[in-house]
Write a protein that binds this DNA or RNA. Structure first.
Lengths: 240, 240
DNA sequence: GTCTATACCTTGATAGAC
DNA sequence: GTCTATCAAGGTATAGAC
């Protein structure tokens, strides 16, 4: 889907303007970056003037903060939903890996903004600190799962922090290269990364290596779109 | 090292202005991003006016392209130097992982610019296509090593492309979180990632799993600074 | 809720003195 | 090789009519 047809959809005034503005903003922030995107660019994409944008949004930076906050909250919510009732550390790790990968594949634009535009928030501002806190809360889920796996003797790893950082980077990188119609389906990507992750932590149960088949399969419905992530996001090459 | 003292060093007129400008540019591009950095910001950091910058650089975008080109060329050169004469795929993979990790840890600013500012080059421009070609040439080294490992029966992996993308993201992520005085020395990071990588590809030699100890140790001197990456880059927290 | 018009600032880049 | 001065274009954000 080209930017032209996206623009046509985004200019449809029968859809709530707040949602269209957020959709356009996340699209442009992800493509060009926050600093390179003007309020006028967003306005043009939704068929409004830049002044009209300020009726819906208090400032460009607040718009960025809203997007990042929503993205982080969804990530935390879907992760905790996925982990609920899960007891075996190897199952929990598989869920962490496949849900983080799925989030970055299904919602490439929001995750790119989440992962790359923290520097665009005023350092020390309330919004900045809030996003940092959300990010830390998410990373705690990983810390807990890895620690439990080591405690129970299911994982045999070196430095837990390095292990976590390496595995998380593998998953988050997905938003940089994944394309919906590309060579690998997203479930396949999740499975492959779960497999690699389980091997990286040397997951073993009763002396036998744990493989992806022994853990819960990827559940892409765990990570639903946000209100302003339209369904055509998933099928279209919006990330350019 | 604070930006203040960095500024003092960068304003030292006994050092070649071209180098100081590149140092300042990569520092600011990495911290704030290319679009958020003004030519006046660079000029202020090196103690010149914005007009003087244009005596040394034809345009801001050309400055970015120069930095990215130099970074990519160094990565390719040090990688090929490291791989020269190496025959065993497991050794080659260890070198790919530790040199990519070392590059991203030793030269965090240049690698952040390399990895994150491709979108800031005019799409289709000569510089853009050149950088893309360099990136592809680098990735080919990975493709070759993984393919050879599979051929020789040393690696047992699923999708070679997904394996490569996952491992490369693990390594490149280093520039986002590594800090010189932090909890883990860079050699340690390289070793840990090599270990995880070898397990991820199920490297085996004579039926026995290959560990990092069986492969060449990380060689940080393989990735020397560029002329405009001063020695204090390595010790100082320039990445903010 | 959207418009036109505008205030005020910063941008990348250039001209020409020294 | 660096400066001052300047340009046109664009930035965020606001005022006030409709």
């Amino acid at each position: 889907m080209s930017e032209r047809s996206v623009g046509t959809l985004l200019a449809d005034r029968s859809v709530d303007a707040d949602l269209r503005i957020r959709t356009a903003a996340v699209l442009l922030f992800a493509r060009r970056g926050y600093a390179a995107t003007g309020v006028r660019d967003i306005a043009r994409l939704v068929g409004l003037t830049n002044a009209a944008i300020y009726h819906h949004v208090s400032s460009k930076e607040e718009l960025l903060a809203d997007i990042m906050r929503a993205g982080q909250n969804r990530l935390i919510a879907s992760t905790r939903r996925g982990l609920r009732g899960v007891v075996r550390p190897e199952d929990a790790l598989a869920i962490l890996i496949s849900s983080l990968t799925a989030t970055h594949g299904l919602h490439r634009m929001v995750t790119r903004v989440m992962d790359g535009e923290l520097r665009s928030l005023t350092p020390g501002s309330a919004a900045y600190q809030e996003i940092i806190a959300l990010r830390d809360a998410y990373e705690d889920e990983w810390r807990r799962v890895l620690a439990r796996g080591v405690e129970e003797g299911v994982f045999r790893i070196g430095d837990p922090r390095l292990t976590r950082l390496g595995l998380m980077a593998m998953c988050t990188g997905t938003s940089e290269w994944y394309r919906p119609g590309g060579p690998a389906a997203l479930e396949r990507v999740c499975l492959e990364f779960v497999e690699m992750g389980l091997r990286a932590v040397r997951a073993r149960r009763d002396g036998v290596p744990v493989t992806a088949g022994d853990t819960p399969p990827p559940d892409l419905s765990l990570v639903p779109p946000l209100p302003w992530e339209p369904p055509w996001d998933e099928a279209a090459d919006l990330a350019g």
